[in-house]
Every structure is written in structure tokens, then in C-alpha cells.
Design a binder for these strands. Sequence first.
DNA 1: CATGAATGAGGATTCATTCAT
DNA 2: TATGAATGAATCCTCATTCAT
Lengths: 220, 220, 220, 220
Amino acid sequence: MMDPQKLLQELLKISDDDKDITPKQAKIIQAAIEIFAEKGYASASTSEIAKRAGVAEGTIFRHYKTKKELLLSIVSPMIIKFAAPFFAETFIRQVFKDHEDKGFEELLRKLIQNRYEFVKNNVPLLKIVLQEMAFHPEIQQAYKQVFTEKVLPKFKKMVEYYQDKGELRNDFSVDTTIRLVINTAVGFMVTRFIVMPDYPWDDEKELENTIQYIKDGIFS
Amino acid sequence: MMDPQKLLQELLKISDDDKDITPKQAKIIQAAIEIFAEKGYASASTSEIAKRAGVAEGTIFRHYKTKKELLLSIVSPMIIKFAAPFFAETFIRQVFKDHEDKGFEELLRKLIQNRYEFVKNNVPLLKIVLQEMAFHPEIQQAYKQVFTEKVLPKFKKMVEYYQDKGELRNDFSVDTTIRLVINTAVGFMVTRFIVMPDYPWDDEKELENTIQYIKDGIFS
Amino acid sequence: MMDPQKLLQELLKISDDDKDITPKQAKIIQAAIEIFAEKGYASASTSEIAKRAGVAEGTIFRHYKTKKELLLSIVSPMIIKFAAPFFAETFIRQVFKDHEDKGFEELLRKLIQNRYEFVKNNVPLLKIVLQEMAFHPEIQQAYKQVFTEKVLPKFKKMVEYYQDKGELRNDFSVDTTIRLVINTAVGFMVTRFIVMPDYPWDDEKELENTIQYIKDGIFS
Amino acid sequence: MMDPQKLLQELLKISDDDKDITPKQAKIIQAAIEIFAEKGYASASTSEIAKRAGVAEGTIFRHYKTKKELLLSIVSPMIIKFAAPFFAETFIRQVFKDHEDKGFEELLRKLIQNRYEFVKNNVPLLKIVLQEMAFHPEIQQAYKQVFTEKVLPKFKKMVEYYQDKGELRNDFSVDTTIRLVINTAVGFMVTRFIVMPDYPWDDEKELENTIQYIKDGIFS
DNA sequence: CATGAATGAGGATTCATTCAT
DNA sequence: TATGAATGAATCCTCATTCAT
């Protein structure tokens, strides 16, 4: 038995894909993340990446056959990591068995808090994913697959479960409910970290308000 | 006196920036919109735009000094148009005087429906704005200015007004309330037209659900 | 009616493919021929070609999408031109009707002399063809097609005709005869212009000897 | 005293340059021969050679200082081996003393048959020599030296001898005679193994025809 | 106004070669 | 001896922009 705090923390470290990486390679990835995030994949030049990584341009291509492969090597693991909480086999069982009493609200709170921390620690990477998804079918594909195979099914079960319990309104379809929740959560993070990162956010309060909003809307 | 239906319709046609445009220029803009939306500004080549427009490469540069000027000539008016409803002097007065009885919900409904139609008719253009805003400070600036000077003040007044009336919960700050509403509305449209345009949407219902969600959240 | 001298001269100028060519383009082709011949296609750099042509490197790619296209635009017409004498409809008829009295020897003499002049005037180009054929299937294909469809059939008719007349030995198959003749003629030219261009050749005598050799071998 | 059969067989194994070669080195040479023959020296990359040889890139440069040295280490021995029959001191003496009765024809036959076997067993290597000679002065030099110092003198003596005997026509200069013979023989092999290796050759007959052609020409 | 040839800087990528392990 | 990561010059090619017609 594990308390949910720990559970979700666990789920983050899904893959250690940073193994077998030379120091130069690590510097390349770091530089690439920065520059891709700053100017976008298409406008980033491998020569600039090499310069910032303190590496010869050729070194990039020794490790990544193409510039695109470099992008994907950065972006692919992100998708999985972002959906990580939904990967754990135990996740949904935990929810139902040990913590059902706490209800959907508590589950939501944990989830959003956890993903909030994740996003906070991976802003440039997520910027890249958001930007480049639009133009790279491979990324869309990967995202779609993870979402429809891993995230959606579990999310659906959750929503159905709490709808049956009468905790969630059931005049919204499951899909609609999920869409609204995800929109609100993701929207918060995008606004918080990407659109207006410089606004003087009171994160704790804003997080709580967001959860309340999802719960009750804005009407009194 | 004007009924709100007409009011909002009016607000759409703010600027006729399609004046004094040669047919070739129009074809260039059309082609540019398509290609910028398809592959992004950085990956779009002026030669491809010229080809699709059925124009010589030089012709583009006769009308737009640089490729970036072409982008801005496309993007700039969009920002104003998207915020159009908030531009009309009469807008807020209308709200307060003639139609206060209908309440925030009705106002919201009109606004969202109207912007929904607008987005529906300008998907590629909005794709471009969303994508390129990240990398072009000029666009961010323009957006920020319009938002803080035009949209935000009026939105604030509205929210304050309805909070005072007790129609909106006031444990949320005005800013937070606005953020949540805009997030939900924009999130819907982005999901609807950009992320999942091929999903079999029941637009009317989804629109209504979104409004209800803003109002009441998802809890029963 | 045309005397065979003129006939063969005519056949040389098959296509004027140098039309619609800008002066820069002409200089590019000239430079490319020189450099391809000097160092081979693979070792020739487009930047060097541009330099020698007095043109920006980009200009090359405005006219030829790829370096290979530049090569083919040079090589392709050569193949046809080299086989030119066999293209004329009237060629073989001329041989049979008006000049049969002169026999195979005279025909051979005219042919070899004519091709000798052609080769003499196109040494670098032929060097390129010989070298690059080995590595470019497109060139092999083109050569094969021209040879099997145009050259071989007419050559066969000629040899058969003179074998029937008893002028040529018929213990050699037609194919073998053709191979031996072409080998000897081509071999002469390759030796003369490519292998040992600096040897003090007495061209007229050597040409005549080659013809005699084909006729009588080297035994007394 | 040695019968000529054996003599010529002997001449083949002139140098055992395969000594002191590590297994890796042998694999490198084998891979290099294949790849040089397939795509030409300039288009062959050391990394591809290393890969096909199952060796690290660095290993190639441990044995051969440069890519070119690798080429020369492959090509140089070929030149000597191809001219091998003319190297043996005893060769010409054999011809004159023991076997003069058999005449030039028999000598030619032996020579051509022997070289035919050699070429047959070394097609890729000869392809490389033919291709690269054009661009590498070192190879030309080596070839020229071997040819003028070893092959030509002996060949000249032979031809002079048989001209004096009245067996060969003497209205052809010695040089011309040699050129014609070599052209015909080499031309056959190039056609046989390089230009048209897939043609259904009747080697024995074609070889014999070639010899007859050299002897008697093609006229009846 | 419109054209399209020309430009040259810059892009991604390749490759022979070096060197620390 | 063998490795393979690292190099950086060189390669082919693209592209925004200019300008003479």
C-alpha cells in the first residue's frame, strides 16, 4: 500500500532514456532544447546548436542522423512522460480502492498538482512539443496513440465511475466532461507557463481556483 | 437602440483592409495563408507561395518588402478582428442598460457563439497566429496591446458588474474569472478546429455544454 | 540525291538543344564539361564549376535542379549525337542503292572518318560519357536503348547484306562481326584521343591502317 | 626447359603481396575492392568500407594512411599482374627458341587465353583500374612505366621477329600492329566482362573468332 | 506593375582523418 | 592492434532578396 502522493511521484520516472549518452551528446540535447524552444525547429540551425553545445557540427550528426531525428529524440519521451500518471497499472485501482472516499475532487487535485510540477520543470520541452506537433505527423501520431490507448481509457473509467456514483453531473457525455477538464487544466498551465510566465502568479491559489472552477463553474 | 444580435454582427466588420489590393496581391495573400498554415512561416518558401499564387517570385516583393512583412500583413488584422466585439464603444453600454436582465450567461453565449463562427471561418489564419506568435515579438506585442487595452478593461467591467450583482461568485478574483472563462472558450475552439477537427462534433450541443460548464462546473 | 559525304555530315546536326539557353547557362555547361572531364563527376564540386563559369553557385541550381541533372543534360545529347549516322532513314538506303558498288570498305571508311571527326571535336564530352556510364544507370539505359534500337538493326542489315554478297566472311556471326568492327574502331579512337592523346599520331595513315586491319587482319 | 603452358601459368604469380596481412586488413581490402568497383573511388566512403569489412573506421587508417593509399595498394599490384607474362626473362627466349614453329598465332592464342582467364578472375579489380586511371596520375605513371619498359619492348621484338619471318604484314608499323592487336584483345575483354557481362557469350568460340580476326580481318 | 534570372549567404549533411582509450 | 567519438572543412542545395528588362 502506498499513499497517492508517492504513487504519482513514482509514475514520473518512467524511463531512464538518458543512459549510454556521451557528455557531448548531453550537451547537444540541452542546447537543442533551448534553441528549439527559443526559435522553433525550422528556424534553429544545427550550426547554432553545435556552437551553443560547444561541439563540432559534425558531432551532432554522429549521434543523430538528421536534424529531425534530434527533434524526435527530444520530443518523443516527453509525450510518454506527460501521460505518465496514466501508465501505471496500479493507478486506477488505487483510486477506486483506497481513496474513493476522497472523491473525484481529490483525485483531480493530485493529478493537476502533479502535472503542474512536471510542466513547471519542463517548460522549454513542452513549448517544443506544442509548437512542433502542428507540423510533424510523427509527433501527432505518437501523441494520439498514447492519448487514445493510455490516457483516455483510464480517464473514461474514472469519469464513468464518478458519474455512476452521482458525484459528477451526467447530462454531459463522458467525452465532453473529459474535454472540459483537460482543457481547463492544460489551459491553466499553458497560460501560466507559456502565454504569461511573467505575470505575478499566486500558484497555490490559482491551482485551487482552477480545481474549484472545474467543480462548480463560476456561478454562485 | 440596437438589438444585441445586430450589435455583434456589426462589430465584426471593423476594418476593410482588403481595399486597394490588386488581384495578384489577393492571390499572393491567399496562397501565403494556405502555405503558412500548412508548414509554418519558417518552412514556407516565397517561391512556393509565388508558385501557388500563380505569380512571379519578384511580384511578392513588389508588394511586401520582406517575407516577414507578408506574414504581418496577414496576421495583424486578425488580432484586431478576433477582439472585435470588445472594440465597439457601445458594446458595454448595451450590456448594462438594455440587456442586463438577460444576465451574464446570455452575454457569454452571444460572445462565444459569435467568436465560434469567426474562428470557424478563419481556421488557417488562426493557426498561423497561434503558431507564429511564439516566435515573433511584433505579433505578441500587437496581441498584448489589443488585449490589455481593449479586451481586458471591458471584460473586467463586465465581470465586476455581475459579481456586484451577485450573479458571479466573488471568491475568484476578476482576473482569475476572466482567465478561466477565456481558457475554456478558447480551449474549446482550439480543440474543435485545430486539435481534433475531424472528430464528429455536435457543435450546438458542445457549445451549450461549454457554456453550462463555465456556469456550473462539472459537479452535480 | 545526295552524295554520301554530305549525307553523313548532315546526320551530325541532329538536334539543336542549345536553344533557349541564357549566356550564363552556356558558361555553366562549358565549365561543367571541362571539370567533369578533368576530375570526374563525383570529384567535381558545384562550387568549382560555378567559379570557373564565373557564376554564383546558386545560378547552377536555378537551371539544373541537381548536380546530376546537370550531368545528364550534358551527357544525354551526346549519346544520340554519337549514334547520329544510324538515325537517318535514308542512310541505309543510300548505302544499298547508290553506293553498293563501292562495297563495305568504302562504307566503313566513311563511317569511321566521320565518327573520327566527331570524336576529335568532342573529346571531353566523350570522356565524361565513358567514365560516368559505369556509375549512372540512366546513362547506361539511354545508351543501350539507342544502341539496340537504332544502331544495331541497321548495322545488322549492312553486315548481312555484305555477307550475302560474299564480301564479308560468314564464318563469323553477324553479332561477332559487328563487335569486332566496333571494338576496333572505338578502340582506335579511345587510344588516339583518350589513352595516348600526346603520341605523335599520323592520323590519316593510322585511320587507313585501322580500316585495312578490319578488312584483312594482320597476317600477310 | 619448360613447356609454354606451364611457363605462362608461372608468370601469373609474380608477387605475393598478400603477406603480412592481418585478417582485418584482408577484409578491408576485399570490401574496398567491392565498393570501389560498385560506385567508384570518389563516391566510396571509408565509413561504408569499414562497415562492409566489419571493422571500425579507425582501423582502415591504421593500415593505410589515407583513402588514396588504400586505393593504390589495391591497384598497383594489378598493373604488374596484368602485364605479368611479359616480365619473365625466359618468356621471349622460349618463344624464339622452342616454339617458333608454332608461330605468332599460337603465341597470341596462349597470351589471350591466359589474360582472358586472368581478367575473368579479377573483374572488379580491373574495373577499378580502368575507372581510376583516368583521374590518378600515379596510376597512369605506374601503368606507363610497366608498359613502356616491360611490355612494349618484348612485344616489339616479337612483332619484328615475325615480320622478318614474313608471317606478319609489314606494311603496318610495329607500333600500329601492336596497337591493333592489343585493342582487339583488350576490347574483347572489356566488352565481355564489363560492357556486356550478361550477354550469353560462347567464350571459346568468341575467343577463337577474335584470334582469327586479328589474323585475317573480316574480309573473305 | 510584373517578371524571372541572378545572387550569395546560410542550411543540413557527409566524410576523411585524428586521437584518447 | 583496434576502436569509435570527435572534428571541421567541404558538399550539394535552398532561399529571401535584388534588379534589369
